[in-house]
């Protein structure tokens, strides 16, 4: 009976992230449009876009290899698995011990590795520029992310997200300087990883500023739909991660009652709304950076994360 329940709640989690991901993107777009005093696309537009793309033919470049056709599925699989490993409404789900935070980052790393390869497969200049810049950004963002994880994990004594969330929700944490720094670092990394302003612009096709879009330029139809869905899942993953580590209140445990799980889910939706709103406000209030300013931006995250790791001894429990 409990096994069934465990599998069920894990299944609910997997479907939940898949269904919510386009909604979050739609929400952020809507808020951004409203802030610019535009009406903006409807909230459900991303779903319609995905369905439209999936029904279309794939137009494949003459030179594209089998790898190019497989990569969207690989990316989607890696990102989906990673996103369903981050606790959303409940902790300690069935497969939470399958992969810890480091493994989740590495799974996203796999997805990015393949995406960068896809950019180079057709042999166009744009694909190359996108891949080359993506790996440059990743070479700073990934270490910053890992060191942030170190600092959080050293405070919580675990890299297992369910335990980290439980620890962060308890009173043992207190207010720590390290955690503040880790939060800023994680936010910067999340902006870079999700190709948001100021690192990349998700809404542009201006060739010299784009990174993510340049890599996926040759994709169409269902392949493009899967890649879009993967990026939406990734955004949801990072927002859930920030919510799980820094706003851990109200998350249910796996063995809680259904009502408690429902409450957890409601609170989770509330956190998504708040963080999505903040993201939209942030994006509308600053400009995109030049490509070679990004290393400084991400270097700041790296340094903050390193400081957070070192300072955890200094501010035991302020």
């Amino acid at each position: 009976m409990t096994a069934l329940r465990d599998i069920l709640s894990q299944g609910v989690q997997m479907c939940l992230v898949l269904l919510l991901a386009p909604l979050l993107t739609g929400f952020v777009r809507k808020v951004k449009a409203r802030l610019l005093r535009r009406r903006g696309p409807p909230l459900l537009q991303p779903y319609r876009d995905l369905i439209r793309l999936m029904r279309k033919d794939v137009v494949l470049a003459d030179n594209a290899s089998w790898l190019f056709r497989v990569i969207p599925y690989l990316m989607f699989a890696g990102t989906w698995v990673a996103a369903s490993l981050v606790p959303t409404f409940g902790n300690g789900l069935l497969f939470s011990w399958t992969a810890d935070l480091i493994a989740i980052i590495a799974l996203l790393g796999s997805a990015r590795f393949f995406q960068a390869l896809a950019g180079m497969d057709v042999g166009t200049a744009f694909g190359g520029i996108g891949s080359s810049r993506e790996v440059m950004i990743a070479s700073l963002a990934e270490p910053a992310m890992l060191i942030t994880v170190f600092s959080v994990a050293m405070i919580a004594g675990s890299t297992q997200l369910s335990y980290v969330a439980e620890f962060m929700g308890s009173d043992a944490v207190g207010l720590r300087v390290s955690l503040g720094m880790a939060f800023v670092a994680l936010t910067i990394v999340a902006l870079a990883e999700n190709a948001r302003i100021p690192v990349d612009n998700p809404a542009t096709h201006l060739e010299l500023t784009m990174v993510h879009e340049a890599m996926v330029l040759e994709y169409s139809g269902r392949h493009l739909a899967l890649i879009d869905l993967s990026s939406q899942l990734k955004l949801l993953l990072y927002v859930s991660l920030i919510a799980c580590v820094f706003l851990p209140w109200g998350t249910a445990t796996a063995d809680a009652s259904v009502a408690r799980l429902g409450l957890g889910a409601l609170l989770y939706l509330g956190k998504l709304v708040v963080l999505g709103f903040l993201l939209a406000v942030f994006e509308t209030s600053i400009a995109k950076m030049r490509v070679f300013r990004i290393p400084e931006f991400l270097g700041a995250a790296l340094m903050l994360a390193l400081l957070a790791t070192l300072l955890r001894f200094v501010s035991g429990s302020l």
């Binding site: 029904r55 137009v59 494949l60 470049a61 166009t124």
Partner: peptide, 14 residues
Amino acid sequence: LASDRLRRAPAWDC
């Protein structure tokens, strides 16, 4: 459920 059609064309490259 959606589509499994595929055709080849020259690369787009903007």
